[in-house]
Amino acid sequence: MLSIQNLTASVLDESGTAESNQILRGIDLEIGPGEVHAIMGPNGSGKSTLSNVLTGRAGYGVSGKVLFDGADLLSMDPEERAAAGLFLAFQYPVEIPGVGNMYFLRTAVNAVRTARGEPELSATAFLATAKEAMAELEMDPAFLSRSVNAGFSGGEKKRNEVLQMTLLQPRLAILDETDSGLDIDALRIVAHGIEKLRNPERSMLIITHYPRLLEYVKPDRVHVLRAGRIVREGGPELAYELEEMGYGPGEATAEPADATPTDTADPSGSHAEPDDGPQAPQARSLL
């Protein structure tokens, strides 16, 4: 379903020239239909850059090849990738003041349906589906009438991401630290929502620091990303080993913390939670 071949990425400077410092330095990854892959790695290893590059965020100089269901993903606009079935659960969901959540969700669902040649959902049909999905995620229906993510707590934002994923029914979902900032109950609910979406046709790429989400959503493969390269691969047990042992000492990180190349300033102040979850226990490295 997704085939990443020798993918590299650098941040573009203001003139549009790629900086010499590569953040991704040749990634190869194959994800088959129905497979769940986890990517773990220390801060600055390139995890968020990978999700940004796959979803088409501007500001990177990219080389290599990415095929999504055989199509050349890197040549597509972000909205075309979305229509093709690629979904990103954002690490920091963005606030859009004044735009109702219900309106936003329905517009998104219908934009994707239209692009796929499917008829638009009526307001009534959409509302019924949305309410059902919200009940699963233990979300108050009042969320629908609030502005997109505005004033949501960190946990509410993450649930809202999973709600969108549920409604958009993607072919491949990238979950970028969806478990960070969640308390135990919220984690269980969110993880249950994700696990429910698992099916033989839908693949997932879970970016995380901890195995705890992976306890609920058991990955087929775990990859360790470090300094822009995949340095280890293994089965689900690798996640526990990492927790136990840490990522180990390595070369200097290639990626600045939370490397978003363009406008990271969020005027609505949605960066309420810390930039990253608690640090992985790097000090006890035995690798």
Partner: peptide
């Protein structure tokens, strides 16, 4: 980008 990732032009 958030909106475009959700499929809006």
């Amino acid at each position: 980008f958030y909106c475009r990732q959700r499929g809006l032009s």
